[in-house]
Nucleic acid binder design. Sequence first.
DNA 1: CAAGCACTAGACAATAGTGTCCATTGGTGC
DNA 2: GCACCAATGGACACTATTGTCTAGTGCTTG
Lengths: 224, 224
Amino acid sequence: MTKRTTPILNRNDPEKEPLVGNVKVTREDWLNLARDILVHEGVAELKIMSLSDRLGVSRSSFYWYFRNRVDLLAALLTEWEARNTRTIVNYCALPAEDINAAVCNFFRCFIDPALFDRGLDFAVREWARRDVSLRSRMDAADSERLRSVTDMFERYGYPADEADVRARILYFMQLGYHALEVREPMELRMGRLAGFLKGFTGQVPRPELITEFNAFAHTVGNEP
Amino acid sequence: MTKRTTPILNRNDPEKEPLVGNVKVTREDWLNLARDILVHEGVAELKIMSLSDRLGVSRSSFYWYFRNRVDLLAALLTEWEARNTRTIVNYCALPAEDINAAVCNFFRCFIDPALFDRGLDFAVREWARRDVSLRSRMDAADSERLRSVTDMFERYGYPADEADVRARILYFMQLGYHALEVREPMELRMGRLAGFLKGFTGQVPRPELITEFNAFAHTVGNEP
DNA sequence: CAAGCACTAGACAATAGTGTCCATTGGTGC
DNA sequence: GCACCAATGGACACTATTGTCTAGTGCTTG
């Protein structure tokens, strides 16, 4: 009943005493912690005991909110579909003045963790590829994403086959970047952006586009 | 002592009776089966009990060949480093008449499963990214690969920064392609190759290059 | 203030997996 | 044909994890 008012123990807070006062744990608390573990430690580490320990409650409380472990995973998958996939689709549909700006929009959606959780994206991918039933949901999300990138290119005059090739390069590249969990200074990545756009679209990007993107990226500070 | 002469039960052979006669199981048998499970079912499913069951021997035999489960995983990782990484490096170093041909060489190395096991590549990646000690070995392999692709571009006259960008696009793209486990008819992929090369290098590939690659790909039939 | 309800603790049973120990087998070399 | 030794089987102890059941506890609402 009592809603959480304080953050519970996260991965940076190994000390005990996770709850303050009489506040109870909510379904959201379970989900948040589960997502965190999924992202940083993988599905294999997503254990009910571990969750309840970190939450400071008994293990059996879990079963009040979720039917079982699979139920929890399904919830995380649904969340992923709704947030991560929709973010890409939305950002690809955004109006832009030229293809370079549009490509920047595509990159833009990976920058803000509040919009797109790249850790979650890959964690879900790793886990769902093994399960046949989940696998198809994931594949559906992927083709929806790819479709929206292709549409983006077509809107800027690329013929269907070229748009298809470009979209694939861009999308697969982004995925590969995720797979590697590349961690490098923002300057380095930004330095490459202009070169990438020039080589990729054949058109030299307006300098303002780069500075704008640069500024935006630094305000949130994550990708691409 | 007695060497295996017949294939043991693989994933397509669910029936019992895996061994014929008195033949004993070798260390290679354990490794082969383990690799198969790692690739198709993930690390989580790589259990000693499961292996021994499928091999038709007792679980404790495992401990004759490997100190423990981690020892087995380490062996698989070493194998991955030696085979998969070396393949990429070798194929990137291959002489080619132009950059299009060189890029085709890069693709070529992913085609033959005997040379490069893309399933293994990604399975290892999925698993090793969680473990700090393994993670660094994997990162080392990745930069070695990326370095060899960059060198390839530099050999064809690209200035260092451009070579860097191109190499990243190419390598990340290939990784992303793996991540998706794209399964589509060879014709489709081949149809895209010319378009990709033209868009990517800016030079129209010689038609013979495409037909050659096409022919090579169909003889082994897998990627890219 | 009392009853109801949302939520939780703790005990319980069941399962699956790991690693160790020791006795045993069956080929090989002498 | 005997002794050795690589290789295996089977029993044992241990731990981790899941899921169920029941008896609470303490807000909240009438």
